[in-house]
């Protein structure tokens, strides 16, 4: 492996950016391909697949044998709101492979006692997200019901191209939210990416069931990144 290639790859991984290490198994030459870089031909198609699935593997292309090692950032879930739903969502999501962080400026809600072993920020989302920006491998679920807390985070999630953005609230609540986000300068198409009412429709009633519905929606969004959704027009 080329030392410069290793340094580049590790820098990408530390910055939470997806990269594929391409090694020619014939002559040992390697290079780092970043997400969005254009690579032509069969090799390019295989690299694109590696980015989408996160799976590493050997491929034959252009008469040569390559190994593609996909390095995708660990997906994570940022929850705005230290509420009852979040108490169920945090352990479930962690088990499913989506570590959770919770942000809620209401210190009565955001207590370690209510959220043992969960990274917890009893601060405004704007302060936390300035330190720890959102990215394309982060999901954001806003569940406080309070526009003062949720709105900024939702707009930030859309701007950061979070792979999932969900917001708790009825259709009526969401209609008002859309108006507010438009007033904040969010685009119509971006706003349409918000999942609301939140969660897959499984008739969830209790906070824990709603957590299951939200987690299912997050997983669906992550596993279908860049894919044409069933039944959707091109």
């Amino acid at each position: 492996m080329d030392p410069y290639v290793l340094k580049t790859l590790n820098a990408e991984r530390r910055a939470r950016r997806a990269a594929v290490l391409v090694t020619d198994l014939g002559d040992g030459r390697d290079r780092v391909v970043r997400e969005g870089d254009t690579v032509a031909g069969e090799l390019g198609a295989a690299i694109e697949r590696a980015f989408r699935t996160g799976l590493s593997g050997s491929v034959e292309a252009e008469g040569r044998s390559f190994f593609l090692n996909a390095h995708l950032p660990q997906p994570r879930l940022v929850v705005i709101g230290a509420v009852h739903i979040s108490q169920a969502l945090a352990p479930m999501a962690r088990i499913a492979g989506y570590p959770v962080e919770i942000i809620d400026p209401r210190s009565a809600f955001a207590t370690p006692d209510r959220f043992p072993d969960v990274p917890l920020h009893a601060e405004w989302p704007q302060d936390v997200l300035a330190r720890q920006p959102l990215d394309g491998y982060t999901a954001l679920a806003a569940v406080t019901h309070d526009p003062k807390i949720d709105d900024f985070a939702l707009k930030a999630a859309l701007e950061a191209r979070c792979f999932y953005v969900g917001a708790l609230g009825s259709r009526k609540t969401h209609a008002k939210r859309v108006e507010r986000l438009l007033a904040l300068g969010a685009g119509v198409e971006d706003i349409a990416r918000i999942h609301s009412p939140i969660g897959v429709d499984i008739g969830a009633a209790s906070p824990a069931e709603i957590a299951v519905a939200v987690l299912a929606e997050v997983i669906d969004a992550f596993r279908s990144r860049g894919l044409q959704r069933k039944g959707e027009a091109a």
Binding site: P3, L6, N10, R14, R16, P73, P99
Partner: peptide, 21 residues
């Protein structure tokens, strides 16, 4: 907090870079 979720102590590629340095 380590929001990259890389394991600096056990990640083989980070260790390899460190050894090289």
């Amino acid at each position: 907090m380590n929001s990259t979720y890389l394991d600096e102590v056990r990640d083989p590629l980070l260790i390899a870079e460190d050894w090289m340095k």
